[in-house]
Design a protein around this nucleic acid. Structure first.
Lengths: 333, 333
DNA sequence: ACTCGGGCTGAAATCGATTTCTCACCCGGC
DNA sequence: GCCGGGTGAGAAATCGATTTCAGCCCGAGT
């Protein structure tokens, strides 16, 4: 592996000059030419480790996501990656598995590795601690989930508004007993989506205690959705529709429904977040489409501004969701 | 950010001693204790960039995969990640998008970044060039796909054997006109799977020209599977079953079948590779299960041996696939 | 009592790039 | 002919850890 000194020797100049050629210093054209030729024949590319050490800034950003198997997060990751690549940053993807300990270990690595910045979809609202990074001056952007009390930029979707719209859509379609499967009590996303659901039902004069009796908290995973849905179906007067707060739980809920021999349009299903291959499988599913890719792209762009030194006040970007109603127009009747 | 010298000063020792405490050198218990306390109160963790520069080896490995949206590769990635974490390596995930240029750019980054090693699911069999890395002494393990003429370790599935078994299974079920949708002509995976399919049909005395007429090459993506399936269905005598060489193309094929009003068990569908949520959706789909997670884990483990300096001769690990027949037992009739 | 050896230590070199500091040189103006 | 200003280039310091090297101390062996 050729070093800068090898190139310098081959070109008959000092290492400083070689560095200047590649970093836009002032060098006479003739010398610059010699350096470039030498670099080419030696196949030189600067050692990024040494550069990072000297400049105190890496060309790597970290992306912490809770579940790489979830298509929502893979789409988000692609958005981050594409944005990062535009400024020659590489992305280290860290899968925290919704596990706060694992997440903290990755945060430590990011600090020790002196990464240029972090995009974080937090594993927990209460327990994720981003202060260490912020303290050390490492730029951080929260995405999708906002850890409580974190002084960072954030890019979110309008969870509450989207959930309210979507639930209202179910009501318009004629469903009356709309249950809800939401995520863990701690997460900002599950709370906001629940709040939107509640708002829509209240607006339709559904009493609070009915709502409470028909709400289940699960874990944002397939199994949790399955169990919660079974519970709801076992009620004395089962619901005639359900609002499910994320894509994976919808898959579980669908399984529970199939086992119970229940299907749309007699039963309304609304998923917050795109269910993979849903259009193929269940054209009768309504979904709230989440701009996952754009979320990632926006977060990475924001992060790059901070890395470049922007001192603007902290900002929160909120992207709109969009409702994709099911194809069939029939209601529950 | 506390440095090793800060800790040394606080503990009243030299930086060398601090380093020895953390890297298993011989230090008296009493001093080691003082160092550890100082490190704790200062919140010291060694700067990995500096360490990498000095030791000439990073604690990061690269994972190059062609499509992060494909659940097969996300499962593989998790396997790599879990294995890597056991030895405190972090994983940089690079999504090459089946694009050889993008892949080459990532390879350059990996070299400049002096990563400890690479796990590569190559974008192309012919055009992916791993020699630069090998030449510079960077350990590389090919996974799932083997680039032609690359002198590297590899972890693969037994594509041909799995495909042959699976096709034979369709024949046993009573299907007679079994078509095939495979991947791009260049890829090792699509060629091997096609070869397995062919072997099974030949074994059942199906003439070669029939086979050739009922084989389509597509691009391993949903759209390609859809188009190929439509072509096959438009034949004068359409097939009564299809062997599809990867999971995403199966999704496309299923859509084409649904649009044509065709469904199992009248039509046999065999997917090479698990289709996400298939069990929920299409219990009547047979799949060849691929051990994606284990593939990643094995590759990362092998890579770590090489990083640790193992000089064993190059090896190729082949993992077995397993056939998961559809639930219903009825045949085509 | 003297030497030899083994275990700890700290000073200093090292990794490879960037960046400051210094100096030589050239040009135009007085 | 002399002097300032500006420019280009090299020597050397620097980033923060690891590692070599040399020295020191202490105990054991003769």
């Amino acid at each position: 592996m050729a070093t800068i000194s090898d190139v310098a020797r081959a070109a008959g100049v000092s290492p400083a000059t070689v560095s200047r050629v590649f970093n836009g210093g002032r060098v006479t054209a003739e010398r610059a030419q010699r350096v470039r030729e030498a670099a080419d024949t030696l196949g030189f590319s600067p050692n990024r480790v040494a550069r990072s050490l000297r400049t105190q800034r890496a060309s790597v950003i970290g992306l912490l996501i809770p579940d790489i198997a979830n298509p929502f997060f893979t789409a988000l990751a692609r958005g981050v990656e594409d944005a990062a690549q535009r400024t020659n940053l590489s992305v280290v993807l860290c899968n925290t598995d919704e596990d706060v300990d694992k997440e903290r270990r990755y945060l430590d690595v990011a600090l020790a590795e002196h990464m240029a910045g972090l995009v974080v979809a937090a594993a927990s609202r209460r327990r994720t601690d981003l202060s260490a990074a912020a303290q050390r001056g490492m730029p951080v952007v929260a995405v999708d989930r906002r850890p409580r009390a974190a002084e960072v930029d954030a890019v979110m979707v309008d969870n509450q508004h989207g959930a309210e719209d979507a639930t209202a859509h179910l009501i318009e379609r004629g469903y009356r007993r709309i249950a809800c499967v939401t995520g863990p009590a701690g997460a900002s996303t599950s709370e906001d989506r629940l709040a939107g659901y509640r708002a829509a039902l209240r607006d339709a004069d559904v009493p609070d205690d009915w709502i409470r009796a028909h709400t289940r908290h699960a874990d944002f995973r397939v199994e949790g959705g399955y169990t919660a849905m079974k519970e709801l179906l076992a009620l004395d007067v089962p619901p005639d529709a359900v609002f499910v707060a994320n894509n994976l739980m919808t898959v579980g809920a669908l399984r529970a429904l199939r086992e119970a021999g229940i299907a749309p349009p007699g039963f309304g299903i609304l998923s917050f977040g795109d269910v993979p291959w849903a259009s193929l499988v269940h054209p009768s599913l309504s979904t709230v489409h989440l701009p996952a890719y754009d979320l990632g792209e926006a977060a990475a762009t924001l992060l790059q501004e901070r890395i470049a030194g922007s001192a603007k006040p902290l900002q929160t970007v909120v992207l709109r969701t969009s409702l994709e109603p099911r194809k069939s127009t029939a209601g529950p009747g």
